[in-house]
Design a protein around this nucleic acid. Sequence first.
DNA 1: CTTTAAATATCGATTATCCGATACAATTAC
DNA 2: GTAATTGTATCGGATAATCGATATTTAAAG
Lengths: 94, 94
Amino acid sequence: MKGFLSFLILWLVHKRNMTGAEIALELEKRKGRRPSPGTIYPVLKHLKGAGLLSIDESKCYSLTKRGRKELEAHLNTFFQTFCDIDEMRSCRKV
Amino acid sequence: MKGFLSFLILWLVHKRNMTGAEIALELEKRKGRRPSPGTIYPVLKHLKGAGLLSIDESKCYSLTKRGRKELEAHLNTFFQTFCDIDEMRSCRKV
DNA sequence: CTTTAAATATCGATTATCCGATACAATTAC
DNA sequence: GTAATTGTATCGGATAATCGATATTTAAAG
């Protein structure tokens, strides 16, 4: 299950181009806790280094073409891994 | 995103009591690759040590009461983290 | 302009996830 | 009942995810 943080970050940036701080805020909204700078910036650096994210002058990240491809692949494995996600959801609703 | 493998294993065992080998097979079905023994058994040991799983004479794992509580908590954070899962799904269907 | 505050970045340490190799145990096949 | 296979387990090493501390850069306030 390694690579899930990267996957989620790709997804967030896909929805809207964001700065590191905005990504951290969004992760806080979702996970209940703001990731520390030591979590977020190294991942962003790695993703940029891997050619999946690009960054503009105002430090705003966006997906590259490779990033979009990678996100697509991650989405496929995600839904295959959690193939019974509806069952998981209804289980929770009890 | 640490703890996702444990979460998935709790979910699988919740659906059906299983041995380590069965869990490995199910993970292969979902993720496309069978986890190596060096992945699966340490996690199982940890989960057992944390009182989330119990194991019977025939090495079949089942959830403890604490394991069920833990699974429930994980389910909640999972669906909060992936709150836009339907959007993710439809994005993939293009 | 300087001070303050916020965002970006790096560092060292810890835990989770992962592999392949090896070892040991239990089951199945002859 | 031994031999081969399968399942269980541990080990060492790698990478990802995480923190908190610190440092640096950038932006805002005064």
